[in-house]
Design a binder for these strands. Sequence first.
DNA 1: TTGAAAGCGGTACCAT
DNA 2: ATGGTACCGCTTTCAA
Lengths: 338, 338
Amino acid sequence: MTGIKDVAREVGVSTATVSRALRGLPRVSPDTRERVLEVATRMGYVASPHAASLASGQTHAIGVVVPNVTRWFFGSVVHGAEELLREEGYDLLLYTVTGEPAARQRLFSTYLLSKRVDAVMVLALRPTPEEVASLERTGSPTVAVGGAVPGWSSVRIDDVETAATAVRHLVGLGHRRIAHLGGVPDPEHAGLDFSTPGDRLIGYRLAMEEAGLQIEEGWEVTGDFTAHGGLTACRRLLSAGVRPTAIFAGSDEMAIGASHAVREAGLRVPEDISIIGIDNHELSEFFDLSTMAQPAPELGRLGARRLLDALASDDPLEPTETIVPTQLIVRGTTARVG
Amino acid sequence: MTGIKDVAREVGVSTATVSRALRGLPRVSPDTRERVLEVATRMGYVASPHAASLASGQTHAIGVVVPNVTRWFFGSVVHGAEELLREEGYDLLLYTVTGEPAARQRLFSTYLLSKRVDAVMVLALRPTPEEVASLERTGSPTVAVGGAVPGWSSVRIDDVETAATAVRHLVGLGHRRIAHLGGVPDPEHAGLDFSTPGDRLIGYRLAMEEAGLQIEEGWEVTGDFTAHGGLTACRRLLSAGVRPTAIFAGSDEMAIGASHAVREAGLRVPEDISIIGIDNHELSEFFDLSTMAQPAPELGRLGARRLLDALASDDPLEPTETIVPTQLIVRGTTARVG
DNA sequence: TTGAAAGCGGTACCAT
DNA sequence: ATGGTACCGCTTTCAA
């Protein structure tokens, strides 16, 4: 590898000048800069990011903490974030973290806090107060995408309102027996999701109450936001109590699983049961699924932008909440009640 | 941040000893090691990865180059790789690269070649000979996952055989007019995919010939391996020439798009047209899609394992080909020809 | 505008 | 088994 010394020697200047020239800093004569650039390019010189980090204290890397990139929302957010970060010359370090306490502990204490990254983006994971505190101590900017963390900046949709809008759509179609598949609080998953499931549940209850509708026993079922979770949750829903005529699922993946369960039970969608989700998953249109669309890649970009802004600023920015609008997309899984 | 000096001072030994003790190297008395560990833990000391990289020449990071994490296969591979890498204490740097030459150029020259990562995993991207050569010069181990790169180790399925098996399944159901949606060579995407689309096409032709079947004009249609690509490709397929009774799609996402196009044309799946894909995408079972299953996360793990093995070895390993078996999964989109 | 040199925080060699 | 100490490659004062 050619190092900065090689370039300096070749041009006949000091390493300090090469460094300044290459990074576009002032106090370099146009002529010198040009020569340095030319030689550096010719020699294929690329600064060692590690050496630069060590000396400058900046890593030019962002850590993204995500439960699972295979879920549509997370993958899409990561995609959007990566796009912007790459444009800006930042690396994206991906940290998958499940609920497992040991792995999680290691992530926060060992990885995020060891000057490995300049800033941290967290998806669907509620850091504990201690984790928040220790991150704060390092001074790394943080942002939560797709949910909220007290005291942090966040980029997300209005989950309560989005959920309520979905339910109102069903109400508008004449449905009065509406169930919800989502993230009803579950001790097992404590800490592994943040505000999102709870807020969507609140939106559901809000819209139901507002319409004067009763939520029957067993109508709030926990899925895990996956298609399989939606499938089993919906089976439970159908096998007990008062059967709903419509289902509002907290994610499209759950909605897709649910529609499978409905058909499996010998019922039709939407004639017997209407279904609506949230996301506008890339495959939803092929399921003809009605949904509340959210622009996941855009959320990722906005989150990344926020972090870069914070890094560019001298003093810590106030936490901001960026709420991105959603849109009702009516397709074939919701219909006027039979 | 507490540094190694702080720990050394506190324990009353040299930084060299602290370094050895913490990394489990020999030549440290059990007693000393224990004291160092205790103090380091108490002080919350974590070695700076950048300083360590600079001194040791090892980054403990792997670069993963992928076209798009939102596609099921890529996301799943990344997930599997990340899991293994994390267990082994390696970071995963995600590089999304489209076909855009400038971005691509920058990726290879600036990022992968600047001692930023110890090894490189590439998905669905055929590096040019120059890129291969320059990577080789850095001595970084490389692996291709989900396809092949001449001279590299690879972890993948047998694409030709898998495609042929899918087609044979259709033939076994009595189909004689079988079309293919896939990656027929397209100058526009030159370089953005590697062996996979071509091999699946070969497998299709192989099985057709073996069964003595004719491939009609217009039966080999280019999709881009996405659902939308499959949709438009299938529309083209249905609107011209001899209509097939079965379609073999090179990915489940294309198959899903295709089935939409079929229904849109007023035809039924599988009564009028049978459809089979490759992947066993997480949502395929909900589409009741017949497919050839491939274990994407496992491919990611194996690829990562391969890289770690190469890093652990003293001399460059010979390129290896790890072929993982696939499995025919018959669901509801394939049926005996009408 | 430019250069010299002191770090940044570890690792690894060579003594002891 | 342990310590001293040159690096690793770049950034950043401070002087010139």
